[in-house]
């Protein structure tokens, strides 16, 4: 059996402790040890973006980082952001515009969208397409996702005057 390491970090706003094997990825720890199954594993090779999480404010493929690297870090997953008006608006617009079909890519896609709007509050369609091109969606053909992100970015009142 694998050795275990003690790990302490902040997850979706709460300080947490875990005992984790050194070879366990962040994605596997979130899913298998902590029950946070909205972080989906689509490739385990860093290609698909379904497992995206935020680590210290930056987008990270949780399948490509070992859990033990998280000591002291702040991690946010797609299951966080409960009080985040931008994430709530994105979720609402994704659902209304049918910007997801099977739902497997959606958590990673929402994080990519939120990241974009935080950096570029009023992106044009090309900027949206470029920014989400680290995330595969096999169902929608992307147009509905672009529409949902555009609508969110251009209708968020709190972003007025930012750009």
């Amino acid at each position: 059996m694998d050795p275990r390491c003690a790990l302490s970090f902040k997850l979706n706003g709460r300080q947490v402790e875990q005992d984790v094997s050194p070879r366990t990825s962040l994605a596997d720890m979130l899913r298998n040890q902590m029950g946070l199954t909205a972080t989906h594993i689509g490739c385990e090779q860093g290609s698909c973006g379904a497992c995206n999480v935020m680590v210290d404010g930056k987008t990270v493929r949780s399948c490509l980082i070992f859990a033990i690297q998280l000591e002291g870090a702040e991690v946010e997953t797609s299951q966080g952001f409960d009080d985040d008006p931008l994430m709530e608006a994105l979720r609402d617009n994704f659902a209304k515009r049918n910007a997801l079909q099977c739902g497997f890519c959606t958590g990673g896609m929402l994080l990519a969208a939120r990241d974009l709007i935080n950096m570029t509050p009023r992106p044009d369609r090309n900027e949206i397409r470029e920014h989400i091109s680290g995330n595969f969606c096999r169902c929608t053909g992307y147009e509905a996702i672009v529409d949902a992100i555009w609508k969110t970015a251009h209708e968020m009142p709190s972003l007025e005057g930012k750009k």
């Binding site: 199954t37 909205a38 989906h40 997953t77 797609s78 299951q79 994105l90 979720r91 609402d92 994704f94 659902a95 049918n98 910007a99 997801l100 099977c102 739902g103 497997f104 959606t106 958590g107 929402l110």
Partner: peptide, 10 residues
């Protein structure tokens, strides 16, 4: 279903 998935409840 879309509302559910958008909230990570798949």
């Amino acid at each position: 279903n879309a509302v559910r998935h958008a909230h990570g409840r798949g």
